[in-house]
Nucleic acid binder design. Structure first.
Lengths: 86, 86
DNA sequence: TGAATAGGTAGCATATATGCTACGTTTTAG
DNA sequence: CTAAAACGTAGCATATATGCTACCTATTCA
């Protein structure tokens, strides 16, 4: 489990920090071990769908907003102003 | 791995059949073992994100269209006529 | 009839996901 | 400066994901 890098990308850290949660807090909310969350954030871990769904539920975003085969780009003006366009 | 049931749902079988693919064909396209696909379809398997992303890429739908914590409802008129509303 | 295709089930082997404990470093708060 | 919190890293144990082989049943098709 040591120094591997997985072949896909995730935005877990950004989403967690945006919600002002520590790993420990997110761990408690999701019932996932905090070290496991750390591994995922460092892209050293290939979690299962079940674990991903727990994160998705607690963070309130879809799986595709957290995990992607392609690197996530930076949030642009359009994404950040989405609430204005409805 | 035998007679367990996972705690979430997937629409893999429906999506595969809709695309007229056998398990063997989908297995070749995704580089996933056909028996592994069978286990997933029977909800006896908790695949990893990496495997899910392969399925997502080949099927051309997002992760959330394949996997969900809640049961998928039947496709309704609105879903099936989505292409008419754009 | 019989061959081919699709699917279900099982057993085994190996890799890895996940939890856990411990300890180090860095950052924050008093 | 010091204590606490957050984060990084490592090692170990157990469960399970995944590939693989084999066999069985059902269906299709020549």
């Amino acid at each position: 489990m040591v120094d591997k890098q997985v072949a896909f990308h995730n935005r877990l850290k950004m989403l967690r920090v945006e919600r002002d949660l520590s790993r420990k807090q997110l761990a408690e909310l999701t019932d996932i071990h905090p070290q496991t969350i750390g591994y995922i954030e460092r892209q050293q871990f290939n979690p299962t769908i079940e674990l991903a769904l727990k994160l998705s539920a607690v963070l309130g975003v879809g799986l595709d907003a957290i995990f992607s085969a392609e690197p996530f780009g930076l949030l642009d003006d359009k994404a950040l102003r989405r609430d204005l366009n409805e």
